[in-house]
Design a protein around this nucleic acid. Structure first.
Lengths: 147, 147
DNA sequence: TGATATTAGTTTAAGATTAAATCATTTAAT
DNA sequence: ATTAAATGATTTAATCTTAAACTAATATCA
């Protein structure tokens, strides 16, 4: 579904690629959020739990950077995960400005329970692409990722 | 930057493609939002104005569907655009459940002023892709778009 | 040492977003 | 015609998100 914008060929090609990419990511994200919404997690909350599971304890700033959200928002996300006792803040002893954010046993159990279904859903969605196309996605996104 | 998840090759390939796609769209979106943020518009507001400019008057439900947001949210977005007199609601005479949402002269002037810079920024960002890669994006997103 | 700058995290204020309940209007089915 | 169902829009309550101002801890360096 191309744009209705009247521009040069080059402009229309770029605009179409952009629109398609954004809409695709948006709708893919919506279709894949059921795995964590069912467990009362928001996207950011799921992202934090998943990041901690796979990368180990991180401080809030690192989490915010990885998940592309602001520091203030990360404070709230960690607060809310903390209220449900899914993560805990532990002051860094060497530098008391930092917290190390750890998964609690309860948090680890939850994310380990949810994650496989999430992967399964992704594999299913991405199954419409050939292996070569999946590699193309990585290459293209790598190029676009550099500002 | 691949995932740390231990899974089958197929799972890791799908997961990596997915993560790259989502992060790419996210950061691309952040880099491209300056064009409208400078004019005090949110992403949704910009989306509405741009859609109305290129597709003509639509009702709120159609706008919500095109922009992948909820109807309730669209009510608020239109409210806020209305407060700034950038759009206006006009009751459909044949079916009074509908509003036709029109760009005002002020709204049309604004979006016509902003849009070229937005396109220019997109062309610049997408310029890191070859023409063939831009076409690949469309093909890949078209496949992923089907649920 | 002690003033200054930097850094991690928090708070605040404004507004965005959603799901769900509700209202108003129109359509469908007797 | 009248009831029931469907449809577009609104409201509500809860949560998310951001930018900017702020606090506390650490680093820098004259």
């Amino acid at each position: 579904m191309g744009t209705k914008y009247k521009g040069t060929k080059k402009e229309k090609a770029a605009l179409n690629a952009f629109i398609n990419l954004m809409r695709c990511a948006n709708s893919l994200g919506s279709r894949l959020n059921t795995s964590y919404i069912e467990h009362g997690l928001t996207g950011s909350q799921f992202g934090v739990l998943e990041t901690l599971l796979h990368l180990g304890p991180l401080c809030q700033k690192e989490l915010a950077k990885k998940l592309l959200v602001t520091g203030g928002n990360m404070t709230m996300v960690i607060d809310n995960l903390g209220k449900r006792e899914l993560v805990e803040r532990v002051r860094n002893k060497n530098d008391r400005r930092f917290y190390n954010i750890n998964l609690t046993k309860k948090g680890k159990t939850l994310i380990q329970k949810i994650f496989p279904g999430h992967v399964e859903a992704i594999v299913k969605e991405l199954g419409s692409l050939t292996q070569s196309e999946q590699i193309q996605v990585r290459e293209i996104c790598r190029k676009l990722g550099k500002q």
